[in-house]
């Protein structure tokens, strides 16, 4: 959280809406520990990360739906997952990410 909070504060001051994505479970060789955060603003800004770089674009896409309907969601990315393959989860791990709109 510490790595994204400065950006989030700035975006809030600029009146942007923010989706916060949190790694809530990590199996295998996941690169980022649970609790890691990625923030996405309604203007398309990104801060932080949830993996070594392989699922960030999928999380960014998912965040667009959260911005659209304000509903939190729990998403799993892993080697058995079609979406994850398509974005290239090369690390061989599986992660669960919780996305929510920041109040």
């Amino acid at each position: 959280m510490r790595d994204v909070m400065e950006n989030i504060s700035n975006w809030r001051e600029e009146g942007k809406q923010i989706v916060l994505a949190t790694v809530v479970k990590a199996y295998g060789s996941a690169l980022r520990p649970i609790g890691s955060k990625m923030a996405i603003s309604s203007a398309g800004d990104i801060s932080g990360s949830v993996s070594g770089g392989c699922v960030e674009s999928a999380v960014y896409e998912e965040a667009q739906s959260v911005l659209a309907n304000s509903e939190p969601r729990l998403v799993e990315y892993g080697i058995a997952d079609e979406t994850a393959w398509s974005v290239g989860l090369t690390c061989g791990g599986t992660i669960e990410v919780f996305l929510e709109l920041l109040d």
């Binding site: 959280m1 909070m5 504060s9 109040d103």
Partner: peptide, 9 residues
């Protein structure tokens, strides 16, 4: 709540 968390951090 977010601000309270940030202040604590």
């Amino acid at each position: 709540m977010y601000e309270i968390l940030i202040n604590a951090l």
